[in-house]
């Protein structure tokens, strides 16, 4: 069952935002990027500066303002349930770094599916 995000607000939206090296490392982990120590050192202060510059936004819009996720208010765009031509397996696999038995070959998978 999903949990609602945003139950807590970011720390210090009105004051300084400090994003630590460890926090960047955690985010890099979530984003599956193997950042080096040097990259982490370099990125942390840059992100702090960027976040500080965007932090003003937290107080701009009042609760009653509806969010806009789509610039134009379209709804109900559907497709008929009719098969259309796709790719052949050969096309699908043509750019694969590795394949075997008409399947994509990937290195061993560590964890179970989420």
């Amino acid at each position: 069952m999903p949990e609602i995000p945003g139950s807590s607000s970011p720390r210090g939206t009105s004051g300084r935002i400090e994003i630590s090296r460890d926090e960047v490392a955690h985010l890099a982990d979530l984003a599956r990027i193997d950042l080096s120590d040097a990259e982490l050192e370099h990125l942390a202060p840059q992100l702090s500066v960027i976040l500080e510059s965007v932090a003003s936004i937290a107080e701009v819009a009042a609760d009653e303002i509806p969010p806009t996720s789509h610039a134009l208010p379209l709804t109900n765009v559907f497709r008929d349930d009719v098969v259309t031509p796709g790719l052949t397996a050969e096309q699908a696999l043509a750019m694969a770094p590795a394949s075997e038995g008409q399947r994509f070959s990937v290195p061993r998978i560590l964890g179970e599916e989420a």
């Binding site: 949990e3 995000p5 945003g6 139950s7 807590s8 607000s9 970011p10 939206t13 994003i19 926090e23 960047v24 985010l27 890099a28 979530l30 984003a31 990027i33 950042l35 990259e39 990125l43 840059q46 992100l47 960027i50 976040l51 965007v54 936004i57 937290a58 701009v60 819009a61 303002i65 509806p66 969010p67 806009t68 996720s69 610039a71």
Partner: peptide, 29 residues
């Protein structure tokens, strides 16, 4: 990488409302 990390941060639970959610409201404004 900078933008991926920034976006990952802004979408994280605990930050979504204050960042992505607020930004979508600013779009309305």
């Amino acid at each position: 990488k900078r933008r991926i990390i920034l976006g990952t941060y802004a979408l994280s639970s605990g930050y979504y409302d204050a960042y992505y959610g607020q930004a979508q409201k600013v779009r309305t404004l």
